[in-house]
Amino acid sequence: MAINILIVDDSAVMRAMILKSLRMTGLDIGETYQAGNGQEGLEALNDNWVDMVIVDINMPVMNGEEMIGQMRENPATADIPIVVISTEGSEARLERLREKGAAFIHKPFTPETIRDTMRTMLHLEEND
């Protein structure tokens, strides 16, 4: 089944790099949506069926941590798998994100890391 993905990052180049990596994974990617900050991300979630959210931390208007917090409080979005892709180095913040069930990919990333993380999150075997 195709998965719909929302990418939230304030850099259009970074969103393009993430999207390109996702398309390289060979996974069945359905619709993809993009947003430039957490606020826009929540609006996109409201308007569309999304199976997975990929989100940065440092963004203007609303940062990723706040967006994830609001997602988890809303029953409609509470269970959507989340991958944080960020340069974040603070242990405390990473721990808070893990507690909210988010997976973490450090920037700069390789497309292979994105594939491996997606495989783990979707519970796919190595050779699928």
Binding site: D10, S11, A12, V13, M14, N58, M59, P60, N63, S86, T87, E88, G89, S90, E91, A92, R93, K107, P108
Partner: peptide
């Protein structure tokens, strides 16, 4: 220009915890 902005963003985001330690929280602006 967007590529250069993302590059400096990633460099800065990786640099600060390397200098200050991973217990510190930084906010990197746009």
């Amino acid at each position: 220009r967007d590529a250069l902005k993302e590059l400096i963003n990633v460099i800065c985001g990786n640099l600060l915890p390397e200098i200050a330690g991973r217990k510190q929280l930084f906010n990197v602006n746009t």
